Each structure stands twice: as structure tokens, then as C-alpha cells.
Simulated scan of single mutants.
Amino acid sequence: MRGSTIELPGTSSAPALLDPFGRAVTYLRVSVTDRCDFRCVYCMSEDMSFLPKRDLLSLEELDRICTAFVGQGVRKLRITGGEPLVRRDIMTLFRTLSRHLESGALDELTVTTNGSQLARFAQELVSCGVRRVNVSIDTLDPDKFHRITRWGNLAKVLQGLDAAQAAGLKVKINAVALKGVNEDEIESLIAWTHGRGMDLTLIEVMPLGEIDGQRIDQYLPLSEVRRRLEARYTLQDLAERTGGPARYVKVAETGGKLGFITPLTHNFCESCNRVRLTCTGQLFMCLGQEDAADLRAPVRASEDDAPLNRAILDAIARKPKGHDFIIDRNHARPAVGRHMSMTGG
């Protein structure tokens, strides 16, 4: 069965991609590099081998694939990595993709970053139509930050946040909940983010890729975190969605939003509207499955977009209903062999 399309009311004339379960795929996350200037302990090993340049999609190829998805009804593009802002000439891609914002074909162009390069690029991102960014910060303790990221400098990231907010970007902080590492800081992260007008999303450790150590030693169920927070805060469930897997609450005492991404304690697949493109042109229809479609081959085989568009439709027809993440002592190997830095965060 090949993926199908439907017309969505109130949007552009582009059809929406429909998966086998009737979900409209309107959100593409694009990894532009597997490289990163951090080595976070839950994401990758310290001694990583990265892909040779010849295997990567060029910026022109990335633009072509993104444009094909926009033409088939994708309304939101998120640029990720690795760390996307370390890719050489990356702002060229943002500038070319911004034409879809100007035409109205695209609702949002955004980015997930570790913040290390934000001071350098914040203003230019705004000029390309980016209005909000997600920044990963797991702790406000500089020494602990360095231990978690191995190579990161918290002061530099905070300077990037200042630059982002000064440029007018709306910032959301992502924090991975790590047992015995930052679980005692979650309340202070809430106070800090909400005090700066930023939202906070907590994320459970995901079993992707080999790391140094075992993820069961890092895994902190967010169901447990929420129970503890409810003893201190009034958490009001919100119906809103931002196109991602987070479920949001309003913290009455601060007035800010708090999100929970719970791939393990609560499968978030029922309303999944997203697919992920790697920097090598592999399209993963599910973060937690190994099945992928090769989009690099049709892009490099022909200047005609018809083969690429067919490949996209065929891939969406294979999108599964959900993932099967497991973390326990009996499943020491990761559920998925590739690292998050390859797939895109």
C-alpha cells in the first residue's frame, strides 16, 4: 500500500501525507550532521567515530528533500543534529528554506540546539524566520554540566540563551531526567525557566545507541517525577500540542508550562505526526524502529523530483503504529542501535 494524501481545510493547497493509520504527517525533523561539540553521557560515547563527508547530504540536497516534503503537506520543519549549528555554512540552508515561510507553504521553521553556538547565530536565525528554538540544558550546576556533556561550557550556553532572547526568539528548555544526577534540580529548573519566560520539557532517557555505561542506571521515570512535583505544585493538564510528543501542564504557582516526554512510562505514538530525516538521507518513520527509506538515492539519481516524491509516499505507507522502547537489566543492549545524534533529536 502506498501512502496517500488528503486536502486539509484551512491550510495551503498542498495535500497532507496520510500514514496507514490515518495520521497526517505534517512535521519533518531533519538532522543536518551527526557531529556535536558535546559528548553527553546519555547520548553517545566520548570516543565517537563520525560519518565521512561524502556520506552526508549536501545543503542543496537537504533543501531539495525538505521542499519535496513541503510540497506534500509538511507544515513544520525542525533542524537538528548532532549539533546542527556546527555544520559548515548551515545558515545557507535556513536562508533557502525561509522562502517556504514567506510563501505560506510552511508554518514553522525551528531548531533544536545545545546552545553552544546561539550567541553567534541567534540574530541570523531570526532574520531567516525562525521564531523559537529548543535548547538542551540538564543542569544549572557548571561542574555537573561539564560532567554530563563532557565537553560543554554552561557559561557559554547561558550567553547563547541571553542572545536568543535578546533577538526575540522564544526559548524552550529540554532537560533529560537522570536518576541520581539532576533529579534533585527539577524544581530549581522549573523556577529558573519560568522565571525567564521559558517553557521546560522533561525527557526520559531513550535506549538509542551504545554509550559508556547502562541506561537503566540513568533512567528516571517521569511518572515518579510528576508525583513528586504534585506534592509541591498545582499541575493543570493542558490540551495543547506543539506538534511533538510532549504532554503539557501549567504550573499554577509559576504560570509557566511544563512538558513531559515519556517514551517509556507512557507511549506517545497515538497521535504521531512526524518523521525523521538523517544527514545521510535515511528517512525513519519511527524513532524507535530500525526501518528506514533511502531518499539520498533518488535525489542523486535524477534531477526530476518524481522518484523522490514516490519514495516519500512509499515510506509513509510503512510508518508503524508505534515503538517498543524497553529499559531494564534484561535488555542491556539499546532498543535501537543508532545514536540519537544520527537520527536527530
Rank of each mutant, 00 (worst) to 15 (best):
S4T: 15
T5K: 00
I6G: 00
P9T: 12
T11N: 08
G22L: 12
A24L: 08
A24Q: 14
L28M: 15
V32W: 07
R35G: 02
D37T: 00
R39V: 00
R39Q: 02
C40L: 06
C40R: 03
V41I: 15
Y42H: 13
Y42N: 13
S45M: 11
S45T: 13
E46L: 10
D55L: 04
D55E: 08
L59F: 08
E60I: 11
E60L: 11
E61P: 11
D63M: 03
C66T: 03
T67M: 12
A68D: 09
Q72G: 03
G73Y: 13
G73S: 11
V74H: 12
I79M: 00
G82F: 08
E83I: 00
P84V: 03
L85S: 05
V86H: 01
R87W: 09
R88W: 07
M91C: 07
T92R: 10
S98V: 07
R99L: 01
H100N: 13
A105H: 15
L106M: 05
D107M: 02
G115Q: 01
A119H: 06
E124L: 01
L125K: 10
S127H: 08
G129V: 08
G129P: 09
R132Q: 14
N134K: 03
D141Y: 01
D143L: 11
D143R: 14
H146L: 02
I148G: 09
R150L: 04
W151V: 04
A155P: 12
V157C: 00
L158P: 10
G160D: 07
A167F: 02
G168F: 04
G168R: 00
K170Q: 14
K170G: 15
N174R: 03
K179R: 15
G180R: 05
V181M: 02
D184N: 10
A191K: 08
A191N: 03
T193D: 01
G195S: 12
G197T: 01
L202M: 06
V205H: 09
G209L: 03
I211R: 13
D212A: 13
D212G: 07
Q214Y: 01
R215I: 07
D217S: 15
D217W: 13
Q218H: 11
Y219S: 01
L220R: 07
L220P: 01
P221W: 15
L222G: 05
V225Y: 03
R226A: 03
R228H: 05
L235R: 13
L235D: 07
L238Y: 04
E240N: 14
T254W: 09
K257E: 01
K257N: 02
L258E: 03
L258S: 05
F260H: 04
F260M: 06
I261A: 06
I261E: 03
T262W: 01
P263Y: 00
L264K: 11
H266L: 05
N267H: 04
E270G: 03
E290F: 09
A293K: 10
D294C: 07
D294T: 06
V299K: 00
R300I: 03
R300T: 04
L308C: 08
L308K: 13
L308H: 08
R310E: 12
A311V: 10
A317L: 12
P320K: 06
K321R: 15
K321E: 04
D324N: 12
R329Y: 01
N330P: 00
A332W: 11
A335C: 15
R338Q: 07
M340V: 04
M340E: 04
M342L: 08
T343R: 13
G344C: 09
